[in-house]
Nucleic acid binder design. Sequence first.
DNA 1: GTTAGCACTCATAAAAAAAGAGTGCTAATA
DNA 2: TATTAGCACTCTTTTTTTATGAGTGCTAAC
Lengths: 347, 347
Amino acid sequence: MEELDERKVKILNAIIQNYLETGEPVGSRTISKSSDLNLSSATIRNEMSDLEELGYIVQPHTSAGRIPSDKGYRFYVDHLIAEKDEEISDIKDLMIEKTEKMEKMLKQVVKVLANNTQYATMISAPAITGTKVKFVQLSQVNEHQILSVVMMSGNIVKNKLIDVEEPLNSENMLKLNMLLNTNLNGLTVSDINLTLISRMKAQAGEFEDIIEQVLQTLAETIVDEEDTEIYTSGATNIFKYPELADTQKASEFISAFEEKEELRNLIADIETEGEEKGTGIQVYIGDESPIQTMKDCSVVTATYELGDGVKGTIGIIGPKRMDYKNVMDNLSHLKKQLDQMLKNNEE
Amino acid sequence: MEELDERKVKILNAIIQNYLETGEPVGSRTISKSSDLNLSSATIRNEMSDLEELGYIVQPHTSAGRIPSDKGYRFYVDHLIAEKDEEISDIKDLMIEKTEKMEKMLKQVVKVLANNTQYATMISAPAITGTKVKFVQLSQVNEHQILSVVMMSGNIVKNKLIDVEEPLNSENMLKLNMLLNTNLNGLTVSDINLTLISRMKAQAGEFEDIIEQVLQTLAETIVDEEDTEIYTSGATNIFKYPELADTQKASEFISAFEEKEELRNLIADIETEGEEKGTGIQVYIGDESPIQTMKDCSVVTATYELGDGVKGTIGIIGPKRMDYKNVMDNLSHLKKQLDQMLKNNEE
DNA sequence: GTTAGCACTCATAAAAAAAGAGTGCTAATA
DNA sequence: TATTAGCACTCTTTTTTTATGAGTGCTAAC
């Protein structure tokens, strides 16, 4: 808070608060009346002039009030957000209605979050990389097809049909299953290297083709998951914020949410970066966001964790004048819940 | 064509053609110049006046040109669309890039279709109801968990973890698997009635709990699929058509695509209804569509089929002035491809 | 240091004017 | 009788003009 004395901070805060609510540039008179420091509009004007010079606020045009700059928002997020922990409606009750399946749960989570915050939301499914093979099973479906079932930690199950020339007898099948399980069990996918592969093939003898295919399935599983599944909700909330609602911008924004490609990049970027003062939450204001389409927005994200270093990201995207406090609280609350839920599920 | 003589038909056609392109009301002068029947604008005006009286076209306001009414579009779709089969880029090549998984394929299909047509598109995954159980397999994952894998016709695989007090020995496991397969194989889910259930439980003896759970999984599978998965693409194409692009409408439209609830109803409605002169294609113009949000749109759908009466629906939603010809051609082409692909996959 | 006062700026809203597209009707024409 | 040219009239759309008003910066007084 070097360059700002207490009064300036108060005024800046008042400006931002007001702007968050209204979305309109705020003038000196408004502040003069609303804030508790009894100062005339003229005095405020002088201070505002200073604040502008320091880069915390800007004027859209000569005779308009001021709006926060990215730097202003940044200051707000870093220093001005009150610490009190508001009551947040427990999402747990809403979402656990027999949602056995991860996918359904995640879909519900983003939806609830979008409803709670009235912004656009996204969540990435926990990435499979680093998870371990828990269980492999081949079964003969009919004469020419074998079904391979692979279960990874986190109870993620992958199936694949493998075509074969002729059926395996049950003895061979048993052998193969043994072979696969003893060799693969507990390994992460990156552990499966060439040495291991050739050893397994050697052991499999005439059935090396099948091994080949199972391993390939595993590899594909990874590739599959490399472009992580992302679930979104509330993209149309953007229309609630006039500064983002013109057709041009809205179209791009919503397209980005439909395509999900950019979101994927965003998440990739985020997962490598730091976080906001130890809360596990990251805030990107305007240009700070790595993704161009969102330069008029702010992005707030949290990372949730399964056991084995498996991570997913949950994020909210809205106008710069977003209710940071509420959003951050919601996210950190949700993060905790997810962490906990997934851990339970893991056992 | 009772009430319309040849010339009126020609004029109506010209009006619609023109409106499809421009989206602007078309005046008598335009028609007079563009069409091949050499008539003055005055004559056209008289004819247009008649056409309006008959309800095929309307005037947005007194001194504007005419635009087609729903009745006009309907006439166009029923009688005026040329029959020639234009070349349509083969979607097959684009989509079969090792898309083993139905889901991915469907996602790609809607995307390609949206790209080809520049409208919003949707596709419903083939409903599982009526498919048959092909294969069931239980396997011991660890001491307290059994994985049940059920494969249905169409190669749809469902997994479920079942908790057990203590592990089954391999002999019992084998027995249970036998039991399940012999009893369930080839049955549709609706075939599984109480008689069968109690018989199976009796046979299972002390393991009736497990049978119970497997069957429950099957039941849940159905419920899961009852609200069919729907994939969409190109919702933002709506912004390309000014008559639909105002924030209000666009927001509703895109929300409907995000929620998918209304689309689901739409599809449910459609699957019970008739089709356009034996092409397997249905066209809903404006109010003809059962869903309110789309009353300013037209909806064109096709139903594709897997073997056993398992159906899915693919649809295009766009402005009333949609390029019906192109859309219908695209759909019927795609329908054929899907039918074929899925049949291959089925074997 | 603070404030009242005032001239000035500039976006926005409202009002007025102009332009244009298209019609309906009438009377002339083939 | 069917077609067409011509013209007045209607409405929307666009452009121009004219307020309106919020908000500033600066100066001078407190």
